[in-house]
Design a binder for these strands. Structure first.
Ligand code: MN
Ligand code: MN
Ligand code: ZN
Ligand code: ZN
Lengths: 149, 149
DNA sequence: GGTGATACTGAGAATTAGTCGCAAAATAAA
DNA sequence: TTTATTTTGCGACTAATTCTCAGTATCACC
């Protein structure tokens, strides 16, 4: 059992959940490559090897993998959420081509000016960029009585 | 005719398009406040004042406003695209609460370490962040023969 | 002010990522 | 086993966005 599996299993146990066959398959497939992926791609890959793991189960497993800090919802491309590994990977930056959809990865260190330096390195012409940080706001830090979650 | 209208009209003319009534209404409504908005909110606001501008037309107008550099697709929240003004606004950063969905805006200057300083100022606990830059990649810079567009 | 070419529009159908309800199947403890 | 709890696949569902299409507005030219 590799590290990802250990982490996932431990995570699940803590929540009173089980590392079932479908979840194992999904986990394994997710960590088979280091590319970004969306649910559909994952589903197709899995379908080839192991007859059937339903889309619903994959959709249900993503939030678990995220909560376990193994992956994150990294970007949105072609109207689909795309995920990527966190475990074993540095945080990095995505340069997404508006025309062909190519996603170029780049190191982060300072940003802003670096954003342009990096772009130059990658011969990418930045037209726009977004920085989105997620977390918990003051109000939500206080009361556990939240609208969401 | 205010500046936004001038810009939009000029933009449209350059493309052989017209500044029609629905487009004027949408433009005006978009620039009435300086908050983020999604198509549904916009639609509701417009419906109150001017009987009917169809959702389809609003959806069709967003890309035009974006191409005219008046607005941008700034973030995704609650499964909806959210837009914000570009014209007359500094580029800034969004702190999105994972629990209540509150969006806090903050100035950009250097980022990364700043991201944390800012978060402290706003009493926001950052759990994750994404930096996504969009533009055109080398390949697409060369040939006009693109997969998309 | 007609007239034809072109661009626009609203309405609603279609598409599609993502979610949900449910009854059957797996799990694991007793 | 029995029993309580999860989990699953399936298919129905939801909701944002896109598309189709037939009717309208626009505008250059007569
Ligand atoms: Mn990446
Ligand atoms: Mn903003
Ligand atoms: Zn490209
Ligand atoms: Zn909050």
């Amino acid at each position: 059992m590799n590290q990802e599996q250990k982490i996932f299993k431990e995570f699940l146990q803590k929540k009173g959940l089980k590392l079932t066959k479908p979840r194992q398959i999904i986990l394994e497939e997710v960590f088979l490559t280091h590319k970004h992926f969306n649910v559909d791609q994952l589903y197709d890959q899995i379908k080839i090897k192991y007859s059937n793991v339903s889309r619903a189960t994959i959709y249900r497993t993503m939030p678990l993998l995220i909560e376990a800090s193994l992956i994150k919802n990294a970007l949105r491309c072609e109207a689909k959420d795309h995920y990527e590994h966190i475990y074993g990977h540095e945080r990095h930056l995505h340069l997404i081509c508006n025309k062909c959809g190519t996603i170029i990865e780049a190191e982060i260190s300072d940003m802003e000016q670096l954003l342009n330096q990096i772009a130059e390195t990658k011969k990418f012409h930045i037209e726009d960029y977004n920085v989105g940080a997620r977390g918990v706001c003051v109000n939500c830090l206080k009361d556990g009585t939240n609208s969401n979650e």
